[in-house]
Structure formats: C-alpha cells, structure tokens
Design a protein around this nucleic acid. Sequence first.
RNA 1: GGGGGUGUAGCUCAGCUGGUUAGAGCGCUGGCCUGUCACGCCAGAGGCCGCGGGUUCGAGUCCCGUCACUCCCGCCA
Length: 602
Amino acid sequence: MHPYRSHTCGELTKSNVDETVRLSGWVHRKRDHGGLLFIDLRDHYGLTQLVFDPDMGDGFKLAERVRAESVMRIDGPVVARSEDTVNANLPTGAIEILVKDAEILSQAQELPLPVFGEPEYPEDIRLRNRFLDLRREGLHERIVLRSKLIRAMRNSMEDQGFLDYQTPILTASSPEGARDFLVPSRLHPGKFYALPQAPQQFKQLTMVAGFDRYYQIAACFRDEDARADRSAGEFYQLDVEMSFIEQDEVFDVMEKVAADTFGAFAGKMATPRLADKAPFIRIPYKESMLKYGNDKPDLRNPIEIVDITEFFTPEEVTFKAFKNVIAQGGIVRGIPAPGAGDRPRSFFDKLNDWARKDQGAAGLGYIVFEEVDGALAGKGPIAKFFPADILQGMAAKAGIKAGDALFFACDKEAAATALAGNARTRIGTELDLIEKDVFRFCWITDYPIYEFDETEGKVDFSHNPFSMPVGGLEALNTQDPLDVMGQQYDLVCNGYELGSGAIRNADPECMLKAFEIAGHAREDTEKNFAGMLNAFRFGAPPHGGIALGVDRIVMLLADQANIREVTMYPMNQQAEDLLMGAPSEPTNHQLRELHLRHIPPS
RNA sequence: GGGGGUGUAGCUCAGCUGGUUAGAGCGCUGGCCUGUCACGCCAGAGGCCGCGGGUUCGAGUCCCGUCACUCCCGCCA
C-alpha cells in the first residue's frame, strides 16, 4: 500500500463501503465524546469523518491528544453511516472510516490563526501565517478559482490563435509612467536593471519581429502605493498584442475572453451572476466623464449626470454662490436622485457633510421636486432662488419627476466632474439603486491623447503615450494638441478598470512628434526608446493590443473588495512581505559586491 | 507626503453623561461524556484598555502627541 494514502479525503462514497483505505490529511475538527471520538480529516480535496473507538487501543489515545491542524495518516475500513447519522452537507457524508491504525506525521502547535470556521482575523496575522490562512476554505477556494480562470484565459487566447511568448524580467528602466523597481548590476558598477512595469515595448517588438498574435500572463512591477484593488509592488496582466488589425478586432478578441471567463464562471459561483454578452457598449471618454463623472463607470447604477450650468446663469436666478463660481469658469453638474423626495432632511445633510469633509468640496446643494397644483415645483433651501419655469427646464433636462431630488456639484470642470461622479455612486448606493448580481461591461473609447497638467503647467500624455493619434502625424502637426484623439480604449466592468490598450504609434516620426508635444526632446526620446524606435525603422506592422488585470478579474468574480483576498502571497499595504520578511537589509558582503553604500534618510 | 476610520483577554466585540473589583462569545488548559458533525456539560488560566504626556479627587472613557493596521487622496503611461 502507498505509504500515505489510497484515496483523498474528498472521494469516498457508499460505493467504497467495506474497502480498507488509507488517508492522510490535516485534523480539521475534533469532537471528543469520551468513549467515542470523531475527527474530520481534511486535504485539498475535501473532508472525511474518522471514528475512533477505545477498543482500538493506542490509536485512540493518540487521537485524544492530537491538536487541530496536525497532519496524520490513518488506515481503516469504509463503513456506511446509519440513516440518522448521514451528513447531507458533506460529499463524503454517507460514509465514515472506522480507524484501525493511526500515525501522526506532523504535530501542530497551538495555532496563531484558527482554520476551522475561519473567523475574522486581523490581516497582519493572516499574512504572517499565510500558510494557515491558505488552508481556510474561502481563500483556498479563491486561489483554485484563480488558477482555473487563468487556464480559461489561456484556452481562450490559444483558441483564438494566440501564442504565449515570454519576455524578460530584468530589463531597462522606462522613463515614462510609474516608478521602477531597480536591480543593481554586479558586473556593471553603478548601473541598474529595472523590473518591467509591463512588457509594453517587448510585445511591440515581438510584433515587429513578425510573430503576430502574442499573449502572456505577465508579471508587472510598479513601485507605487497600493489600494484595495491594486496590489503593492507586483501584479499580473493578461497581456495581448496583434498585428495588421484595427480597434474592432481587439474588441472582438477580448469580448471572447470575457465570455470565456465572466460568461463561463459568473453563473457557477456561490452567488450566481449574469454577465453582459458581446458586443459591449462603447462610450466615448467625454461622454463617460459627463454622464458618470469618471472613465470607469459602474453601469449597474442607473443615475446619469447632466450639465445644468445654463440654468444658473439667467438674471432672474439669484443664487449667488454658484453664479460666482460660474463667473470664474466653473460649471454645474446635476445628479438626479430618483425617489429621494421622501427622504428625511438628515439624508441630504449627510450627503452635504460627506461632500465637504470627504471630498473637500464646498458642498452638495439640492432641490427636491414635487407636484403642486399639477405643476412641478421645487423645495429645499435653495429652491427659492429659481423661477418656476427655470426649475421645470432643469428638471426636464435631468429627467426628474415629482418625488425625485436633484443634487448640484458646482466647481471648476475637473472638480465638479469628480464630485458628481462620486456623488452618483454614493446616492445610487444609499438609495439602493445599484443592480445586483450582474457584471456590466463597457468600452471607453476616443480618449484625448493629451491633457493640460495644471500643476506642471504643461501639456502631458493623458492616457497611453504609445497610442496612435487619430489622424497620425498630420493631426499632431496641424491640430491643437488638446483636440487630438488617441486610438486607445479601456475595458470597464462594474466601476473597475479591467484593462487598457491602444492601436500603437508605430511610425517613428509620429512617435517623436507625439513625445515632443508632451515636452520630451527628440534626442531624449531617441535615447529612451532606442530599441523600439529603431525597430520601427526596419519594417513595423500596424499593431495594437491591450492588457487586462488578472488579479482584478479574479477579485470581481470571487466577489471580493480586496485584491489580497485573491492573491496567494500578497504584500501588505506598506509593500512588506510579512511571511518572508521582505524587504530586508542586505549583508555588507552583498553591498560590496554590488558596489553600493546605503545612505540613511536624514 | 496628506486626510478619514480603528486600536479593551489569543480573536470578535460590549463597557452609558468620567466613579470604586473591566465583561460576553469563540479559542486555550483541566475534568466529565459512545453518534457527533458550530457536539454537550463543569471548572480554570488569560488584561500596561496600543504607547507617551496632560486635565481631574478620580481616566478604558476627556484633551494633546505618537505608533500600528486599514480605507482614501496624491501616485499608478
């Protein structure tokens, strides 16, 4: 017989009754009745109930003193449970093992983190004891889900004719974008490699090299601060690039991937959900910023923001507070709150407090609309500043009816847009308007290639510096940079950006010009992107692609709000690995070899 | 770098407007228990109330500072 097991803990059923089996696993739970003792033995595959009888002798004593999470091996016959002791909640619940021989393979000490029942535990303890945390059912299942999802992504890509090509981890620092992780070179004193923020240049070079349809589950490294939906330090992308294509073909490929992942998995989860089917709706960036207040709209929320600046400017409107802001270039965005008319005053006050304290806004004004003598009328602290016909015009534009409220975000365009977007989410949530158990997808398209950076006082790339401007070099030469669109797009689901891509700028002249407009001298661009620019001078196919955040997709499907809940060995928010103790101080020997000296912060 | 929240037993949390000996559940230890599967019953151990300072006759409770964790802003092409 095999030294450890003849079966796993998840497979024995009535058909195995009378077989003598050998199982190994962890002591999940012990129920000691004095004269009779039950142990649920657990492995990756499931649970099996063991029965220990005092008649068996030493094995019983061993079971009495064995601690939870110890590893043991047992032998014994499979016996059918009597009618009244069958456990219908367990796949193996029709049988149990009458233990004849038992051996402790590894004794567990008192646990810093209980596995059974998985009670809530502080995250630092969970991370420090991740090997125990990963034994818990919820996290264990999510990691298995992650594996299956990655397999589904790979299958989807391979089915569509893509091949997996690996790209370097040790590479050159990229001058654009996030902070790099640097790796000192021993052979070249004073020089550093960088970990890739994404295989962006490599995948484009792969297209120039004639490979066509590329994909990779690529590790990406960025030395930026973490968020609940953004891992510290490193994350994975489904990285995709293809040649001789236009935007629609990228969309087709990725909509198939979404169908093979969300479409295939969402209905089978603990809480079954529906996923939008292709084709996903497309929303131009400008429209998204107006209607949803950001470029990653949660379309489960039915609220649509409208611009209502025009109703605040007429002379007969006497609301000075907003008029002053508008006079200085501000705007007013209206956020409809359907059915909020019957909410108590505190509902409106709380939102106003939130806007001031959390959002740093001047406030969130509102008017409640009601029917008076058959006509729509406004009520609330600022309604009195408006003539009836203007209020009615405002309500018509915002799609407001009696019983609804309309909130106002008034500020400079960027601030008003952001406040309105956050208010839309908050109001939708408070009024319980968000659709449940659905994945709503959309493409955000037609991004401007540049934006004006207020703090730097200059034009900068707004989204993706490698994207092809609509109209190419000629557009860059003749149009106001802020009017030039880029052939770039984001895939968005339920308010999360799942991925971002572009048709690439593969024309060296056009690329140099694009960077020049963003304030990068031609010779700097030549130097910083020497490899790629050179490649474009020796026959580059038109190409484009996208990258999807793998972790975020798993997070959404697993219905988790935190990316660490779908990552086996995550770092904490401060980018520390509490399990392995990283980052750590190097030895002097290591530093000497690398020709480095540490200067502590003063 | 900045803002919010949290910090009381190993864990989850209660502890009123400041008041005398800081509680519960889970876990842990010991005992009892032959059909449990969140087993049950009895007993016990376990607290610098995050840390430092202040106000007060008196601080878990109020104030200031600080640290830790977390969420957010900045940042993330």
